[in-house]
Amino acid sequence: MVCGFLGAGKTTFVVERIKNSRGRTAVLVNEFGALGIDGTLIRSEGGLDVVELPGGCICCSQKEGLGKSVRSIAETIGPDLLLIEPSGVAEASEVIKTLTDEALAGVIRLDAVITVIDASTFFDFSQPEAFGAFFLDQVQNADLIVVNKTDIVSPAEGERVARRILELNPSAVAVETSFCRLEAPLPSWRQKSVRSEGSFGPAMECVSITPESPISQQQMKKFSLALSSGEFGRLFRAKGLVRGADGGLINFQFAGGAMSATPFNQEVRSRIVLIGYNLDRKRINEFFA
């Protein structure tokens, strides 16, 4: 699911993803009714199934529309990957609820919530009461935040944006881009010791999990070992908040082959995000089962 307010660059992001996606890809677009410029852009990539989501109101009936559309796409197109681009003013949490509802069990698996933000407007737009709940909700519910247009902001502004993102969603991974494009070489297994947060590679996967149970120190060590040994796949980055055996939250970061873990004092839900290639979802899930 790819979220983002008007002008953030989410359509560019979707187009980039389509270019680099493997297998059959479909896109579900909701632009409050008609397929607007965004849809046209995506459609121009060709060979792609674009489905518009009916309904234009944020009322409850729309949720049913989304569920119906996803089911219909699964039955008629059967894509390997479905990119869902909700309206720019959609509340991500509401769309997540629908997509993870048991009514869609076995039909779709929500791999990741990606929110694209415009670095040049984000700080102002993310102030309380700048907009309704949708804006912060998209950031707070993201697994991955693509900070776009970093080329047009000063380093100081970039820092300010990074701090704000951390305040809003400490467990998300943030990557910086310009034009949502893949300008840096792909991070590869060999390059894993190089910090390459400025790029987001094609065909890279993002796996997000919400551990139900606390994790002991021993499990944490095993997890770190598994990450660095490649047990879960070719890992580029991992980040998350997990509940320790004493009930407190632990903020861990995995980058460059090394794990760091620090206590985290705010009360948020546990979540782990892994980004990399050929990630073994089954094994990851089993580890936290």
């Binding site: 944020i58 003013v89 509401e94 309380p128 009461e129 700048a130 907009f131 309704g132 709940a133 909700d137």
Partner: peptide, 13 residues
């Protein structure tokens, strides 16, 4: 007035 929902606009707006 559905677009006046708090999902879209803040109390100030």
């Amino acid at each position: 007035e559905p677009i006046g929902s708090a999902s879209l606009i803040s109390p100030r707006m």
